[in-house]
Structure formats: C-alpha cells, structure tokens
Write a protein that binds this DNA or RNA. Structure first.
Lengths: 213, 213, 213, 213
DNA sequence: TATGAATGAGCCTTCATTCAT
DNA sequence: TATGAATGAAGGCTCATTCAT
C-alpha cells in the first residue's frame, strides 16, 4: 500500500548541490531513468550516455542537473534507504510483540520491493562495490542498523519462547534477509503474484516449516 | 554421453597447439587468479591488467593463454556448473524419497559453496549480465535444468504428503534457492560456521519453521 | 585625433542597443570580475562560469552583456593598452632629453603596474597566446610601437653620450622591459614597497650599476 | 657548455611508475615532444592528442608510457630544476667572492636558458599554476632555495663593500632574476646572440649601470 | 536582465586486444 | 611464453555558447 512509498523526492529535501538547482522536476525524471538503467544493467555497465539517450538529451547536459554519475547513484540510494530504515524503526517501536513485529518487518520488506524494485535491485547488486566506494559508507551503516533491529526482534522472540531456540539468530536472520530481498530478481509488480501474497507464502513457510507435522 | 564431457577440465577441451597439453599448469593458475578477482570485484570491474598484474606478467601476455577475457569467465563457469548439475542429477537419481533428496540437494549446495566460493559468487553476481550475453546461454539452460530437479522433488513431496500443500512450489523453491546461494556473500570457509553446520541450521528452520509449536 | 579615441571606455565603443547607454554599470562590474580572474588563474583556466559565479549570476546570463569570453579579454586589453601607448607617446613628446624621458617612461611603467596590476598581469601572461590569436593583432602592434619609443630614447641617449655605447640597445631594452613588467608578479599595491620607491630603486641600479666604484 | 646539460634523463634516475617502464628510449622522445608543446602553447592549452599526433601515435597510447599528462609535466620540471639547483649550490660553494659568484650564477643562468629553453619557458609560464597545483610543491621549494643562494651572495657583497648598499637586496634580486629568465621569451639559441654574449651584456649593464660616468 | 535547460565539441583517461620481437 | 608498443573504441566530464521563457 501507499505506506511503502517514500513520497517526496530526496532532491526536494536536500540543499543545493552542483549548479544549485537540486529540486527541479527534470532532475526527478532523470533520476528515475538512471535508477531504471542502473538496476537493469548495473551501475558500472550503465554509461552516462545511456541515461542521456533515454532522456533524449546529450550526455553532457546531464551535468547541468548532477555533478557526477556517482551523485545520481547516491541520491537514489539515500531516497530508498533513509525511509526504509525509518519505517523499520517505527515498526519495531509500535509493534506489540516479537512475533507481530517480525511479521510486519517482513511484510513491509516485500511491500518495499514492490514499491521500489529498482532501488532494491540496485542495493542488492551493487552492495559489494558500495562497501569499497568512499562516500557510500552510510549504506553499510544503515544496513547495520537494520540488521540490529531484526536481530533484536529475533532474540526477544527466542527469549519469550515464540521462536525456537535451537537455531542461531545470526544465521536465521541472514537466511530470512537473503530470501526476502533476493525476490527482487524475479518478482514483477504486475506479475501473477501480488506482494502481499508473496509475503503470506513466505510467512507460512517461515512459521511452520516446509514439512507437515 | 554428456556425463563424460563435463568430467574433463575446460582447459582440456580447448586445444591451443599440436600435442594437446594445452591445459597447462600456468593456464590453471591464471584462471584461478582471474576467478578470484572476478568474484571479488566483479567481472566488468576486473581489468585484464589486474589479472596480469596479479600473475606477474603483462596484460598482453595473457592472450597466449586465453583468447579473450570472456573465455576466462566461460571456462570458470563451465568448470563449476557442469559438475554441479551432474551431482544434482545423481542425487535425484540415487535418492530414496523426496524428503531425503531435498535434504541432500541442500547439503550439497552448501558444500559446493564451501568448495567453490569464487565460482558461486561469480554465478550469483553476474547472472543478470550473463543472461544478456550471447555465448553464455548454457548458463541459463543449466539453471533451468537444476530448477526442474528441485521443483520435481518439491512436487513429489507435496504429493506424497511429506511437504505441506498450502504453499506454492515455485515460490518455495525460489525462497530456498536464494537463501542458500546468497550465503556465499557472507560465508567464509575458514570462519566460525562449518558448511555442514550451516546446512543443518538451514534444514532445521526449513523443516519445522521458526516458531515453536 | 587618436588621442580622443582612447579616452572613452571600450564599453562606450561597442553599442548593444539603441540609445547607447550600453556601457552600463553592470558591464563594468562584470569586466572587473573577469579581469581579476583572468589575471589570477589565467585566461584559458578561467571559465565563463567562474566569472558568473563571482558575479552572482548564471553563466548564460553573461551573454547579455558580452558576446563572448574573448570580447571580455579584448575589452580589458584595449582599455589598458590604448592609454598606455598614448601616455608613452606624450612622455616622449614632452620630454626634454633622453635621460629624463627614459626615467619618466620607467616611472610611468611602475605607476601603470600599480594602477592596473590586473591588466598588466594579463598582458604579461597571455602575450604568447595573444600573438597566435586572430583578432588580437593590435596587441602586438601596440607592443611594437611602444618598443620603438623606448629604443629611440635609448639610441638618442647613446648618441648624446649620456648612455654608454658598449651595450646593445636591443638587449638593454629587453632587460629593462622584462625587469619592469615582471614586477607585476610580486608587486602588491598595498605591500611594503610603494611603486615610486620601486621605481627609484630600479633607476638607482640602472643608472649606476650594482657595483660600487 | 656541457656543464649546463643535465645529462641522463630523470626517468633513468627514477623508479618505476605506471607500467613500470620508466627508462625507455621512447619515453624520452615523447617527453621531449611534450615539453616542446607545453612550452610553446602552454600546458593547459596542449592536449594529449597534440602530443600524440606529434609523436605519430594515438592519444591513448601515451598512457603506456605515462600515467597522466601531469606526470609528463612533473618529469620535465624535475629534470630541469633538480640539476639547476645543484649547479647553483656548487657555484656558491666553489666561488671565491660574492662578485665572482654572482657573475657565475648569472652566466650559468643564461647557459641554462640556452641549454633547456623549453624547460625554462615552462617554468616561467606555468609557475602561477604550479603554485596552486598539489603535487608540485617542490617547484616552489626549489625556487626558494635558489632565491636564498642569490640573496646570500648579494648580502655578502654589500657587506664586503663590492655591491652598493643603497639598494634593497630583495628588489635587486627580483629585478635581476626577472630580467634574466624573461630572456627565454625572445632568446633563440640559433639566433644572432650567443648566450655568453647575452650574459656579458647583462653583466656590463648590471656592474656599471646604463649611464656613463 | 536573468534563468534554466540544452548543445556540441572536445578533453583526459581506460581498457580489451593485437602483434612484431 | 613473454615483452613492449600500439590500436581503437568508449567513458566520464567540462565548457563556451544558445535560446525560449
């Protein structure tokens, strides 16, 4: 649902950058095109000319809106990761018990993939590179904060007895995280599976396991 | 038959000169270096010079061993995917029941990650690009064959009643597949988790679910 | 006569619209900013955007005042070189003897550096480029006229016996010229040396030499 | 004379840089071409393509020899400034009295201009830019060391009474320095003036002044 | 007068690849 | 087998300039 959308574009929220016209309409459009291409072909494999071509302008003209290709990537990631973390924090705070919180975290994750498949794909595909890239330290930092939230919920659940105690929380978290976010590679918003349905299926297996009892 | 083909190393299949000892020792070394770099930095991000530097030779000299950068990637992938598929086929054939076969498929997957982390990482990270790249159609083909095996096992399990029937097999397969293969991003052969232990943990959650009953 | 022409500012000479108040105030401001930057960073190294930034407008807006970057350079140079040549002509005409004329030429040179350091620096630094640039032939022409004046004075002085005859006039002229105009690189109007003092020092060495007798 | 030449190329003296083949024959040739162009058109105005064209290769091929355009400039400057400073130090050390040392410094300066007009021009024309450019701090440093030597000689001469005391040493030094090095702009090694002759003329004026007594 | 968007040409640099030695 | 030199195509970016609003 709409709750997944981050609303306003980050350019709006941010101050001036190169050129000083960070909050224009065109900027947003170009960012969308760039994000699409970055997600599809990969960041390094997408040329500035590709983006410009798609936008119907010359490559040099992009630099009227952005000071570098990297800035585009940065803006796309911030626009996605910031709100995502905030939402996770809110879910944990407002949740009633570990069980309900975990489910909500999972449901929101699938909703986020549905709402911003492009940003998620980018995050998934470029994370290795991003960890090496200076200026993108915040990506790993947000990743760590998110991990902390999930781990706390899992631990709390084990303590209260709703989650089984014979599994390693770290491993479980990683299994869950990877299974969820990897769906971006095959999930199609307009395909036969709705994101809520995918979430339900995932929760079903996660809760009770694959085997009959 | 096909089984015999994948047994030999890729270097073997490619003759460079009369005689046929083209699968030289040096070639294997260089391939190892390339694989390592491809997996770490990404295929596109790794330059031929990076590989040559690491090998202590000049970039042009690499072309005495391989006809192109792509050939290296190709060889690495074939060497990994061929045997992997064969093993999966064998597991299915020799298995006694869906439950046991699935467990074995999973166990072998984690073992493969442990044995060839570099190749797995390459396969994981470059699959999107590979799908677009002509000459690498076999990668998707093997992927489909593997998928078929897993899906058959899951369906058989549902039919025989050992796997619950209220979950979509396709979705389940993807969740399982992604969770398993994604571990390559954080699993370290010499780390605190042994691959068998990871497999056991994964099987535990998968069998009975995260929740206590 | 010619004297009248150079009295008016260059802006005056160039009409942009009906009426003729094209030599607007803003134009002069912008020219000052451009001159400052050209002198500091070099003409080629100064971008039109640098100038616009400094003026608080967008680079495209500069073209309402000037038809090109080159026009700015042209105007700055003309405004400086025209009056300079006239003054030198006047000094020669009004002077009484070679000795006094040379001293006056030198004193005025230092005064010009003090008054228009920016234009002098520009002239010094870009002269090589200017000699190649079409449309700037007048710069070399004025240079030649100035040289002629100085050489005549030196020759006359040698003839009259006040300047020693065992030195080549051409070489002497160049030594003198270069020593004088190069001071623009280190002379600071507000520094510890006043321009008259620098002139006196220069004249002292030039007249009697560095050595004691 | 031969003493002015710096002999071996700096590439020889230095360790590996990009590519690791710093001391090749081709490298020296390319450096000469680059120096010539840098001096003639200016560093910024000379494109890498200009250099490559002149060398009869493609611009990209230059990067087999140098890691950047800047590296070429750096090497040219070091090759000139290093030996120059050393020579000045030697002259001061071996000199007998201020008078003789100053004359020798001046004579060697003119010889250096004759031997390496290109490097001198480069140093003269780009010094402002060089002062701003990180990585070229050594240029200003060497300049300061050279200044120190000259100033010491002048001061010593004033103390011993051979140089007049009513002139500011700093100003004198700058007049002398600028007059000498500026000759590079018009001095032509194959022209009518030999560098020794120019030096003699300069010394004549400097010693006794322009005026007859 | 000024803005904002865009052009078009060119710049420095990278990189897979080739080939004579 | 390896070197050293070069190719040719492309990539990210800069910049003077134009023009509709």
């Amino acid at each position: 649902m709409a709750a997944g959308r981050s609303g306003q574009t980050a350019a709006r929220r941010r101050g001036t950058r190169a050129g000083g016209n960070s909050g224009s309409h065109r900027r947003g459009e170009l960012l969308g095109i760039a994000a699409e291409l970055f997600a599809t072909r990969g960041y390094a494999e997408t040329t500035v000319r590709d983006i410009a071509d798609e936008a119907g302008i010359l490559s040099g003209s992009l630099y009227h809106h952005f000071s570098s290709k990297e800035e585009m990537l940065d803006e796309i990631l911030r626009d996605f990761l910031g709100p995502l973390l905030e939402r996770f924090i809110a879910i944990e705070k407002e949740g009633e018990n570990p069980e309900q919180i975990l489910d909500e975290l999972i449901r929101h994750s699938f909703a986020a993939i549905d709402a911003s498949p492009v940003a998620v794909a980018l995050y998934q595909n470029e994370s290795t590179m991003l960890n090496r890239q200076s200026g993108f330290e915040y990506v790993a930092e947000i990743g760590k904060k998110i991990e902390k939230i999930w781990l706390q919920v899992l631990k709390a659940g084990q303590k209260s007895g709703v989650f089984r105690s014979d599994v390693d929380v770290n491993l479980s978290y990683r299994f869950i995280r990877d299974a969820i976010w990897s769906t971006v590679r095959w999930y199609r918003p307009r395909g036969k599976y709705k994101h809520e349905a995918v979430a339900v299926q995932f929760l079903t297996v996660l809760h009770g396991g694959l085997h009959t009892t």
